[in-house]
């Protein structure tokens, strides 16, 4: 029996907020990277996350049937989800966005909404519209036993894995040849072309990385919550998009910062007020920040190109 001290409760909520924030960040990075490079809000990005969760569910069922141990199932199922979702992201860009590269900005946006609806319906037909139970793939750590009420094993795994994913992304973007080309393409596409950079390929790589990170988020959260359905992508997508806008869409550190702020706000609103009000607080925060900093926390004010 646990009796909460206010401080312990506060720490528990902080962990819960950071966990949510980590998941939002994994999804928000895809939104912000794609926006940074082609100026498109990819409304189908949440569906990639949902497909990641479904893929992990299928993969883990097969792997469990084969009798593999739990950590191996988690790692292999996550890998399968990442690869499969990355393939979806790559294909989506190629068929739904690339042909509209030089079209008015509204056209790819509508194409993205269409893609989102298509993918939801496709999963509904191919899988089910019902909730499906998702196995707890993340093992329970014994050393966390004394802190059971404050931080769970899944929280810790989500925090660490997503942090590693984000650090990996930052290193890739800062130091590798591809990462530099991604930044160059985002800053000046025509010049990148004039320097022999294959801009189409850089855009494909951006979709692949963004989709892979979203899929990782999908696996982790599904394992945490224990059930999935075809609408999880819509809800998580809206939240992550909010986080990306909050931090300044197009900015990678902004997406991470916005995600943690949003996650913590929701956790404290749930913990101290009521879970009915978590969205009220989240979106009020968004409105407030956009009033005072229209470009988001770390975004740069730019001239609207529409």
């Amino acid at each position: 029996m646990y009796c909460y001290a206010p401080m312990e409760y506060f720490i528990e909520l902080t962990f819960s907020g950071l966990t949510r924030g980590s998941i939002y960040a994994l999804i928000a990075l895809g939104y912000t990277m794609v926006y940074g490079i082609i100026g498109l809000i990819n409304f189908a990005h949440g569906e990639i996350y949902m497909i990641g969760a479904f893929t992990a569910l299928i993969a883990s069922s097969v792997l469990t049937y084969l009798g593999l141990p739990l950590p191996a199932i988690l790692i292999l199922a996550a890998l399968a989800a990442i690869i499969w979702s990355a393939a979806y992201g790559y294909t989506m860009e190629k068929i739904a966005y690339r042909p509209l590269r030089d079209a008015p900005r509204l056209s790819p946006l509508i194409s993205a909404i269409g893609m989102s609806i298509f993918l939801q319906n496709y999963v509904q037909l191919a899988q089910t519209a019902d909730y499906l139970p998702f196995p707890a793939l993340i093992p329970e750590f014994d050393f966390l036993e004394p802190y059971a009420g404050i931080v769970g094993s899944t929280d810790l795994v989500i925090l660490v894995v997503s942090a590693l994913g984000m650090i990996g992304l930052m290193l890739l973007i800062k130091y590798t040849r591809t990462g530099k080309a991604m930044r160059a393409t985002a800053q000046d596409k025509k010049m990148a072309l004039l320097l022999g950079i294959n801009v189409d390929r850089i855009i494909s790589i951006t979709f692949i990385i963004g989709s892979g990170l979203a899929a990782l988020g999908g696996v982790l959260i599904a394992s945490h919550i224990g059930q999935i359905n075809l609408y999880i992508g819509f809800i998580a997508g809206i939240k992550a998009f909010t986080a990306a806008v909050l931090g300044g869409i197009g900015s990678i550190p902004g997406a991470v910062l916005g995600s943690y702020i949003l996650g913590l706000t929701e956790a404290f609103a749930t913990g101290y007020v009521s879970s009915d009000y978590e969205d009220v607080f989240a979106f009020s925060l968004l409105v407030l920040i956009l009033i005072f900093r229209p470009a988001g926390l770390l975004g740069k004010a730019t001239i609207e190109k529409v």
Partner: peptide
């Protein structure tokens, strides 16, 4: 190789990174 009108420096890449892009 073309140096276009208006120079088109990548504004947020450092000088060295800009040069790296020439040797991409």
């Amino acid at each position: 190789c073309q140096v276009p009108e208006g120079r088109h420096i990548f504004p947020e890449l450092t000088v060295t990174e800009n040069l790296d892009m020439g040797a991409f």
